[in-house]
Design a protein around this nucleic acid. Structure first.
Lengths: 197, 197
DNA sequence: CGTCTATTTGAATGTACTCAAAAGCGGTGG
DNA sequence: CCACCGCTTTTGAGTACATTCAAATAGACG
């Protein structure tokens, strides 16, 4: 099997030979998930990291006040999973759920270690991506503190317009850390204030 | 030079031989910083990651509203620096400043790559720590959303009591994402409500 | 002792929330 | 095709938590 999307993503970090790519792909297990199906839920260990070959998912938790909190939405070309749980073997606090029928290419811990030893591109890829994700999460933490609800909405429109094509509005509100009612009001205000622009 | 704190921290991940530890230490440059001195500031590239052998620092930025936001306080045994800037070579958004006279053991990018190739303990250490930091930051992002100002304060008391021994209260308030006045009020309320406990 | 900074306190304000209900939308089955 | 049901989005009124602005008090350092 080819998985051209995956190949393109890996090439983004360093060139890959056919042989190395095939070796890597041999370690992956493709899996399909129906809409609303969970890849894993909280209270279980995340045993596989996964590449989103097709579809759209949300990574979320239910907090101590029984509120859902969404960490991210993922679409094609994203890697998903709970690295903390994956490496430590502890149960995850988070859940990963398909928002649309999705196809994932998954790798378990043994395959991960094999790939790390035998596929330089994979070693480089996840090393770089982990550091980038860490940075990006720190940036997001700060943005969450700094921005008002309206600013968060406008920023998301600018940075991730695809989300508005695939995700219902009340989920976007939760992702932005606000109530669906608040997002609705913000949209109304913006529509009134700036129909021109 | 011995650097027993550093050795103990590395041993936390995997055993180290004297030879490997010496090889690693030879790649480090010790540096001292006075109180309030910056290790690096925003607008410059973070060229060194550093181990806190002694002292206490804060990692912060000035946001788009000209407000200081503190990402973390670090004390002995922490590794500090902006990994995003360090690896990408882009200017950092963040600044790192000594809160007390501090001694750092620093490593630049060349030494880092050398160490990664030649010191297995270092390769394993930063790989594991990066993933852990990423997880921890995600957890913190969620906590920031979920908890009230008072809950954040109580949680910090429980999880990082050392901070209250070394850091002035208004800096703690900023770290918790609130105004110094708010933290003062919260402390007052808690003192009134629960002198018994 | 005096100055500078940190902390506390008060009063008024604002942003986003809660509770509640109405309107809109999409899919299903009669 | 239409009627109904469930879910999403909108709207309204009142509330809460933390903020702003302002000033007083306390504490640290030279």
């Amino acid at each position: 099997m080819h998985w051209p999307r995956l190949r393109r993503v890996l090439e983004g970090v360093s060139p890959v030979t056919d042989g190395e790519f095939d070796r890597f792909c041999a370690l992956l297990v493709p899996m399909r998930f129906k809409k609303k199906q969970h890849v894993f839920t909280d209270q279980e260990v995340c045993r596989r990291l996964a590449f989103v070959n097709e579809g759209c998912l949300r990574y979320y938790l239910v907090d101590n006040k029984a509120e859902e909190r969404i960490i991210y939405f993922a679409q094609e070309d994203w890697w998903v999973g709970d690295m903390g749980s994956f490496f430590s073997g502890n149960r995850s606090l988070y859940s990963l759920q398909a928002m649309e029928p999705s196809e994932l290419l998954t790798i378990d811990k043994d395959a991960f270690e094999t790939a790390r030893a035998q596929c330089p591109v994979w070693e480089a890829f996840y090393r770089i991506k982990t550091a980038q994700s860490y940075s990006a999460t720190t940036d997001r933490y700060i943005q969450f503190q700094s921005l008002s609800a309206e600013e968060k909405y406008l920023q998301l429109m600018k940075k991730s317009p695809w989300i508005f094509q695939r995700i219902p509005q009340h989920q976007i509100a939760i992702y932005l850390g606000m109530k669906p009612q608040s997002l609705s009001r913000i949209r109304k205000q913006l529509a009134e204030r700036g129909p021109i622009s």
